[in-house]
Amino acid sequence: MNSAKVEIRDVTKAFRSTGGSQVTALAGISLRIPENEFLTVVGPSGCGKSTLLYIIGGFLKATRGEVLVNGVPVTGPGADRGIVFQKYSLFPWRTVMQNITYGLEEQGVPRAERQEIARSYLRLMRLEGFERAYPRALSGGMQQRVALAQTLACEPDIILMDEPFGALDAQTRKLMQVELLRLWEQRRTTIIFVTHDVEEAIYLGTRVIVMTARPGTVKHDEPIALNIARDKEDYMLNRAFMELKMRIWLNVKEEVERYGEVARS
């Protein structure tokens, strides 16, 4: 009966700051994310989106509540949950190729096979010719594509993404969105994708969550059932799309204003 891929049960997270006071980042958030869902999460800055992902990833412990993955409580990080961080976090001492093969290496995939898999992702991310480059020689957008390839190459069961395209230029960003969507349509990996861009959230997600300002909970939960081909340009001019965008944006705006904080854009 428990068919949820990821189940978040009443998760609360409080940080003790240096002054001794407490900051409640998440206040009793509950969510069920079924298999194959592409969940996108939007919300004002500082509402606990990253924190939620880190708890699902097993990097942080919830103060109260728990997260179940395939019905089993999360106790720590694992290779079943891949993550792409807000900030590029490539291993600077490894070349592009070595970065992409890292996870495969750790899982004991034989060398020849690793190389082959990595090469296909290199092509996918349009990084051919940079196999031997070190991260510092790459632009921000290229680094983020390597980070994406590094995580995808492990073929995790669930992918957690924390504003992965936030630092990319507009063009690269669009290309990456199309690429990610294509990949998801092929594999139907469960994805939890945090963004501050409402349009991106609707375009990519099969379901959008709007979080409240801190302490974060779910404010608005909306399945995206637009029956149109996701060809970007047409899609955005669609009336249903615009209505949806307006509705979600108003929800976000309300939270931003309530908190008196300006969302980054």
Binding site: P77, G82, E106, T151
Partner: peptide
């Protein structure tokens, strides 16, 4: 960088 550590942990 803790993200490097986390990245490695999430890749097994």
């Amino acid at each position: 960088d803790r993200y490097l550590v986390w990245s490695a942990l999430s890749k097994g």
